[in-house]
Design a protein around this nucleic acid. Structure first.
Length: 921
RNA sequence: GGGCAUAUAUGUCAAUUGGUAGACAGCCUCCCUUACAAGGAGGAAGUUGGAGGUUCGAGUCCUUCUAUGCCCACCA
């Protein structure tokens, strides 16, 4: 419907009347609800272009540093909830420290993601030009990749900007840029010269789809329920006897070079040393004995294929067996498999092998067998084990460095400490050599050069290699390095290590080691541990002090988010629907280190919270004429409510800082949520509303100042909303900044972060307000339970000790307003008619409200009895404790005293309540 | 096979060194009160997975069982 359409035909629409009324003029006009998009679009650009994210924004030469490098997302990636969680956590940490005056470096970057990127560009090439990488050649293909990178590589970084993270984009790095590539070459050469990198043929994980070797960490298990165990019968040479072997992969029998049994297996003792006629091949292979064989499994006899199985490979080495490779790189059978099989895919070959065994009457049986298969982490193709010449890193020195650091200094400290500390150390202790070569084109090409005789020369540049070889007739190794071989240098390669001649650059001196690494569980081995090693090895210092390991964001159904299940939640959609700040609060508020399920209800409630902050600020701004932020007002409050909110402010600041220092993000969020909503909105605004709306300039300034302090504490979590509001506060200026940013344009990003001060917690005000709050709550409770309308004025009678009555007297006007009572009568002893509702306060003070004609006696009796029952139950428990001599003797004195005190309170309350109850009966 | 987590209100999750269980959402009652109905006021709801034990006292520590999840190794 058009905006100004008039409903109906004649007359005027009552909704339109408002337009014609004189518009009320506010000091500041804010819409009724928070619209996140406006703020999100506006502020990030200003922050970034103003240089606020750069460490250089800090003008204090002696400022302490705080630094975090972001785990580089894949250049092909797009933002998911895991990123959003990690980035939120890091940004919260950095923003707070920045506000506290630290010189902060928050460094972003992107990973070239060898396999993913190559696959993506290959696919695109196929689609657009129907060509393969081979068709166009290495150089042309790499050009295509760079083209792709320049065109689409910015997706992830622009999504990161949307998150509001305060990273220094001027220091953004890419693992394939020159400096980082030089670092990789340098490290490779150094390790090679020291003997830690070597080239050798060993059995490896081969992905037939990607046509490259993979490290153990890039291979994952996949359970196959439809697996089968095939029993193949092999005839013993020159004998009627046969031996049956069980296998899940019949096609590999073409490469068998032995059959193995356990030396202690009596069934086969007589066969050891004999040979079998390997069917379909015409080869004879020996029956050997090896402890590896489990007599209990299958038939107790195992076919041995050293070239296609890691265990068989080991056995083969022990027994000097031939390694017969029967497969090609794409998992088709090769010539060695025999003419019938050459060129067949491994699964086709399997069918044919089985058919032929069947024909020969040598297929004993087929069992159903559930099994797990190794598959490629990325493309899920079943991995083939085969023997291949690859580059490896011997990790022993680096393992010792990392373990030594952990043992001697405790670094890095993991949060949560359990189970990550142990997992980390155990993994290091059992570390194996790392396969670093990959049969790809996209990546850091291995700086190894071969001459005509096949001799290898490893050097950082071709020129050096030529010089060393004494000939320029050299060919560079075709392979590239594992992507992680550049990632593991990330903590310092991003800080100018290569440009400083592989020494400490200014940035490294200023910001390394970084303070904390925030990451998900799955790359502790792949990345975290390797960063520790490389940093110790090449820089001589740890890369980070702490490691905060986030939980996994699960889908609403408690399952992992996955594309195939379609249960994923796209953070960008959540940003659109609920706002970035609400999403950040949700993520931070869920971050306990445990996995957690995504719930729309959560983000909805933080969306509501954002709106609450908006409206509370709106109220303050609507009543801000003649007022401005004035921190000195918090120092000299007279009124109890004011001293109370200042106390709560300080308590909150102390608790928030403590929580964040301990990476207890959920706790910090809870504390802020309740401080702002409960203390500030529900109590402080309501208590002071009269003063504020009536134009009391000091009250107005004070509430603005409290709001300012609150927004500052919320800012690390909700950057957009808080900046939007803070910019509107009268009196906002660079004077409110931490001293390190005195010269910057006013922004809440630089406002001094409240750290809290226990000495500013005013106990007298706290207990005075506790009385006021309790009294108001009790009266409201009576109204609600006795169904007395708010419009019905009441008289509240209170009888109790002097302190309580004094507190009530001092805050009479506010109590009257918030309880909508007409009068408060303080007296030594209650003098009220029988027709009254009664209750009692913690201090034992009695409250009664005469309800002539309004009271429902039955209801009131029920109400009192319920209160009595509840208190009596608690009292019973406490007196039981107190009558236990052991408790009194052994429990800490303050605990006993607390129980005594509470017990006494309950006794007083119970007495008062039952007297009141008697009066009604 | 080895290791490690988790099990708390209807749901999702909290609970510092053992001190007697909280939040949010949902639910029930009332209220569109001039910051906010994305709101206000009040309320109901839990023998903390089962069983044993240590302790004056256990959600928290120990043993054991059950269920779920994760990691590592292996899987002929």
């Amino acid at each position: 419907m058009p905006r100004f359409a008039v409903k109906g035909g004649l007359g005027f629409d009552p909704h339109l009347v408002a337009f014609w009324r004189p518009v009320q003029l506010f000091v500041m006009e804010l819409s009724k609800a928070y619209e996140p998009k406006e703020a999100e679009e506006k502020h990030y650009q200003v922050w970034e272009t103003s240089g606020f994210f750069k460490p250089e924004a800090n003008g204090n030469a002696s400022a302490e540093k705080y630094s975090i490098v972001i785990p580089p997302p894949n250049v092909t990636g797009s933002l998911h909830m895991g990123h959003a969680l990690q980035h939120t956590i890091m940004d919260v940490l950095v923003r707070r420290k920045r506000m506290m005056g630290y010189r902060t470096l928050f460094l972003p970057g992107v990973d070239h993601a060898g396999i993913s990127t190559q696959l993506m560009v290959t696919r695109q090439l196929k689609q657009e030009e129907n060509k393969t990488p081979k068709d166009i050649g290495r150089e042309a293909f790499l050009e295509k990749v760079w083209e792709w990178k320049n065109k689409f590589g910015g997706t992830i970084t622009s999504q990161m900007r949307r998150e509001g993270i305060s990273v220094d984009w001027s220091r953004e790095r890419f693992t394939m840029e020159d400096a980082l590539s030089n670092a990789v070459k340098h490290v490779f050469v150094k390790l090679y010269r020291e003997g830690w990198i070597y080239r050798g043929a060993r059995i490896v994980n081969w992905c037939p789809n990607d046509r490259t070797v993979l490290s153990d960490l890039e291979v994952v298990d996949q359970t196959r329920k439809d697996g089968k165990l095939y029993y193949l019968r092999y005839p013993i040479t020159d004998s009627k006897q046969t031996v049956v072997v069980a296998t899940t992969r019949p096609e590999t029998m073409l490469g068998d070079t032995a059959v193995a049994v356990n030396p202690n297996d009596e069934r086969y003792a007589s066969l050891i040393g004999k040979t079998v006629d390997l069917p379909l091949t015409g080869r004879k292979i020996t029956i050997i004995a090896d402890e590896y064989v489990d007599s209990e499994f299958g038939t107790g006899a195992v076919k041995i294929t050293p070239a296609h199985d890691p265990n068989d490979y080991e056995i083969g080495k022990r027994h000097n067996l031939e390694q017969l490779n029967v497969m090609n790189e794409d998992a088709t059978m090769n010539a060695a498999a025999g003419a019938d099989f050459e060129g067949l895919d491994r699964y086709e070959a399997r069918k044919l092998v089985l058919a032929k065994f069947e024909q020969l009457g040598l297929l004993e049986k087929i069992d159903e067998y559930e099994m797990t298969l190794p598959v490629c982490e990325r493309c899920k193709t079943v991995i083939e084990s085969l023997i291949s010449e690859q580059w490896w890193v011997n990790m022993s020195e680096m393992r010792d460095l990392a373990l030594g650091l952990k043992q001697e200094t405790g670094f890095p400290h993991f949060t949560p400490a359990n189970p990550h500390t142990k997992v980390y150390t155990n993994w290091l202790e059992n570390l194996r050599d790392w396969t670093i070569s990959r049969q790809l084109w996209w990546g850091h090409r291995i700086p190894a050069y071969y001459d005509q005789e096949g001799r290898v020369f490893v050097a950082e540049t071709p020129e050096e290699a030529v010089a060393e070889a004494g000939t320029d007739n050299l060919r560079q190794d075709d392979d590239v390095l594992d992507t992680w071989f550049s990632s593991w240098l990330w903590s310092f390669s991003t800080m100018g290590w290569a440009d400083a001649g592989f020494a400490k650059s200014d940035d490294i001196n200023a910001f390394h080691p970084t303070d904390v690494l925030v990451t998900a569980r799955d790359i502790i081995f792949l990345w975290v541990s390797r960063m520790v090693m490389s940093s110790l090895k090449f820089l001589g210092e740890r890369p980070f002090d702490d490691v905060y390991v986030t939980g996994t964001v699960l889908a609403a159904d408690g399952q992992r988010m996955s594309k195939t299940k379609g249960n994923g939640v796209d953070p960008l959609e959540v940003f659109d629907q609920y706002g970035v700040d609400a999403t950040r609060m949700t993520l931070a508020g869920s971050s306990t280190g445990m996995d957690f399920a995504w719930r729309d209800e959560k983000v909805e409630s933080y969306r509501n919270f954002a709106n609450k902050i908006w409206n509370a600020s709106r109220f303050c701004l609507m009543n801000s004429e003649g007022a401005s932020i004035d921190p000195s007002l918090l120092e000299k409050s007279v009124d109890a409510a004011d001293r109370w909110i200042v106390s709560r402010l300080n308590e909150t600041a102390l608790a928030v800082n403590k929580a964040l220092d301990g990476y207890a993000f959920h706790e910090a969020v809870q504390i802020l949520y309740h401080f702002f909503w409960d203390d500030f909105c529900d109590w402080y605004i309501e208590l002071t509303k009269d003063e504020i709306t009536s134009g009391n300039a000091e009250a107005r300034s004070r509430i603005l100042t409290v709001l300012d302090q609150s927004l500052r504490m919320l800012h690390p979590f909700m950057p957009y909303l808080t900046e939007e509001l803070w910019q509107k506060l009268p009196g906002k200026s660079a004077k409110l900044h931490n001293a390190a940013y005195a010269d910057a344009d006013p922004t809440i990003m630089f406002a001094d972060f409240p750290i809290g001060d226990q000495s500013k917690v005013d106990e007298a005000a706290m207990s005075e307000m506790a009385v006021v709050i309790e009294l108001i709550s009790k009266v409201r409770n009576i109204r609600a339970e006795m169904r007395i309308k708010n419009s019905e004025p009441l008289t509240v009678h209170v009888a109790g000790e002097a302190a309580t009555l004094k507190a009530i007297g001092a805050n009479e006007a506010r109590i009257l307003k918030l309880t909508r009572a007409g009068k408060i009568v303080a007296e030594e002893e209650l003098s009220v008619p029988k027709a009254s509702a009664r209750t009692v306060m913690t201090t034992g003070a009695e409250i009664a409200i005469p309800l002539e004609g309004l009271i429902d006696f039955a209801l009131e009796i029920e109400r009192l009895e319920a209160q009595i029952a509840k208190l009596a139950k608690e009292g019973e428990l406490l007196s039981k404790q107190l009558s236990n001599d052991n408790f009194v003797a052994k429990a800490p004195a303050d605990k006993v005293a607390a129980v005594r005190e509470r017990s006494a309170e309950i006794e007083v309350q119970l007495k008062a309540l039952s007297e009141n109850l008697d009066m009604l009966k």
